[in-house]
Computed example of a mutant assay.
Amino acid sequence: MCAAMLLLASPLAAAEVPSGQEVVLHEVLVDAQETVTWLRFRFLTPQIAAGATQVSFDVAGQDMLHLCETVALPYIDEYTLSGDKVVISFMDRITEFGQPDPDAVQYFESFRPENGVCMWDEF
């Protein structure tokens, strides 16, 4: 398990996304590994919870790209952060980073910041 430095915890910050689902920035973590530094933006998104009205990963993926470009990149610039990858994660309930929660629904997408845009990147 790696050590991640918490940059933002409270207050929670709401964000708008193309799907219109409720999205709240929960925390930002700088996760420096041996060869790569991950900038992790963790969002509370209750509408991804399993059920008849669940927001699918396909829909959420567009929201994640939007948040990377409209929330993560400006945040990185504002706080002069340096990282190789940006991870946008959605969780239907607050979970502790790095701790399994089999009841939680979570979606993840990785991006490479490049010339002011977010390029999709495989984990």
Rank of each mutant, 00 (worst) to 15 (best):
T37D: 10
P11V: 04
E34F: 12
S10D: 14
V30A: 13
V28F: 08
E22A: 13
V23I: 12
A50V: 04
I48V: 07
F57K: 13
G20M: 09
V28I: 14
E34C: 08
L39A: 12
A52W: 01
Q21L: 04
I48R: 02
A49W: 00
E16F: 03
L12I: 09
F43D: 03
A14K: 15
Q33Y: 10
Q21V: 10
L39N: 05
L44S: 02
Q54V: 01
G20R: 09
A14F: 09
L44I: 11
H26W: 09
T53W: 00
Q54I: 02
L29V: 14
V24F: 04
L25F: 10
F41V: 05
L44H: 12
T53F: 02
R42T: 08
G20I: 07
E27N: 14
P46V: 03
I48Q: 02
H26V: 05
A13S: 12
E27Y: 06
T45K: 05
L12V: 11
F43L: 04
A32L: 09
I48P: 03
Q21I: 10
F57P: 01
I48A: 02
V23Y: 05
F41Q: 05
Q54L: 01
L29Y: 15
E34A: 15
V30E: 15
V30C: 09
V55S: 06
P46L: 03
I48E: 01
P11Q: 09
F41D: 04
I48S: 01
T53R: 06
L39T: 10
T35D: 13
G51S: 02
T37N: 10
Q54D: 01
T53Q: 13
T53D: 12
V36P: 01
D31P: 00
T35C: 06
A15H: 11
A15W: 07
V55Y: 00
F43H: 03
V23A: 15
E22C: 03
P46Q: 03
A32V: 14
P46K: 03
G20E: 06
V55T: 14
L39Y: 08
D31S: 12
L39R: 05
E34I: 08
L44W: 13
V23P: 04
T35W: 07
V55W: 02
T37P: 09
A13R: 11
Q21C: 12
E27V: 00
W38Y: 15
L29S: 05
P46Y: 02
D31L: 12
L44F: 09
V36C: 08
T37S: 13
F41R: 10
T45H: 00
V30K: 14
T45W: 00
W38G: 01
E27S: 15
A49L: 00
F41Y: 14
S56I: 07
V36I: 14
Q47C: 01
L25Y: 08
S19C: 11
L12P: 03
Q54T: 01
L39H: 05
Q54Y: 02
R40G: 00
E27F: 03
H26L: 12
S19I: 07
T45M: 11
T37V: 15
L12Q: 12
F43C: 04
F41K: 08
V24E: 06
A52C: 00
A13W: 06
